[in-house]
Design a protein around this nucleic acid. Sequence first.
DNA 1: CGACTAGTTGAGGCCAGTCAATGTTGGTGG
DNA 2: CCACCAACATTGACTGGCCTCAACTAGTCG
Lengths: 250, 250
Amino acid sequence: MLTHANAQLQRRSLQHEVGHSPVRGCPVWTLTGSSLASGLDPEELSLVEHLVSKRIRLRRGDALYRVGSAFEALYAIRVGSCKTVLLGRSGHEQVAGYHMFGDIVGIDGIASNAHECQATALEDMEVYPFAFDRLENLARFSDRFRYNLHKLLSQECSRAQGRTLVMGTMGADQRLAVFLLDLSERYSARGFSPCEFVLRMTRGEIGSYLGLELETVSRMFSRFQEQGVLQVQGRLVKLLDQVALRALPG
Amino acid sequence: MLTHANAQLQRRSLQHEVGHSPVRGCPVWTLTGSSLASGLDPEELSLVEHLVSKRIRLRRGDALYRVGSAFEALYAIRVGSCKTVLLGRSGHEQVAGYHMFGDIVGIDGIASNAHECQATALEDMEVYPFAFDRLENLARFSDRFRYNLHKLLSQECSRAQGRTLVMGTMGADQRLAVFLLDLSERYSARGFSPCEFVLRMTRGEIGSYLGLELETVSRMFSRFQEQGVLQVQGRLVKLLDQVALRALPG
DNA sequence: CGACTAGTTGAGGCCAGTCAATGTTGGTGG
DNA sequence: CCACCAACATTGACTGGCCTCAACTAGTCG
């Protein structure tokens, strides 16, 4: 109950901050918040906006796309958050990413023209689809937009590569610390508190994302709390000692 | 001695296969072998070729670029192979990738205009630099090339993401199996034997790449040999039972 | 030859996985 | 309003896989 109210509050405060028209308007704020539209002049921005023809609503648990789905578009998240899940053979699955409003998902489909993972809403969502052929077309005319698109793709690489370093060299406590600091930074970049936020994932999903078991994640939360580094109550997390948290990873 | 002769042989046989002009010529074969130039018509191909102005030679151990180097170009590997290494703070480092001739390296620099890892030659190399601003420019005019470029970037993402799955969910034996099968496939795609090849990395580098210690890698090699799955002699690997190897992961 | 690097193998310890029991939360219907 | 249920979370005990430390071998180069 409290957590939900908190989310509401956050959402409202963001809307205020970026000062966008509350509903139905063009998704300017979604885009300017994203890397795709940064630095575009008004004319280019207008072109980008006109790529958006509809808005997709998802309920918690719904899939935006599934493994093997034909790749048609990138999706800008306007409201809510989702996870992307990779399926290993034998049903073994792993959370590949966590995406919040302002993020762009669907990049995994470009390589093979079919999505390689499944995107599942962690809460009710609204996303704007951008047909990829039209994005590519736009990239032909706008130097800046092309640059942004390349940067977006490249950043996705960097992110994934950073994760391999985390998974390959760090212990459970370090991994969780990195995860929390990443969340903190991303919330902060969106105008929210970097010290207090609500997790949208279960312990199991966090563990899957970090290459750990859910029990281990739970234990690490408890240990951090004992050490006074943070405070946890279910999915509500308060970071008390960011310095200590940052000192953990090597 | 034998291994080196083997490499020589392999190299010559490839040259034969793709039928390129043996030396000094334009790097057509390098490009057509790569994803960047696939499907281009002769005119476009010519444009790509003209992007190449020089050839860089590296000796084993030399760095093609270092962490923090200004990002200027992507590099097509004509001869040899290299590793890319990420540096965690506190000097901890991790091998991020292994790249052989026909591959393109340097993508890690796009996101922040500076390289995020270091590329080090594992043997003597020859690479062709492609100034990135000129690549971007070309991407403006050629739809097909733009598509290839996006695909290249996206594939890099997929590769990294696949690695996180390996590192997050698999045991030491499975990781090594995946690694060997990946090598096998890549050699095979270049016209070499998928069953017999020479590793260009030390046990320590393989371990770093897989998130394991060098002793563990060594032990896994020994175990596989005991089981009759493969045969190892130093860096020369012969895959005897690919079925068993493929059955391991998943 | 000696110094060095790469690789193999063994012994022991620790971190995280596994199994299992219990506690907590949120939603549903009597 | 409360009982009930399912999903989520916590905690403990035990196990095992991988890391760590260490000794030894093989090949390389000045």
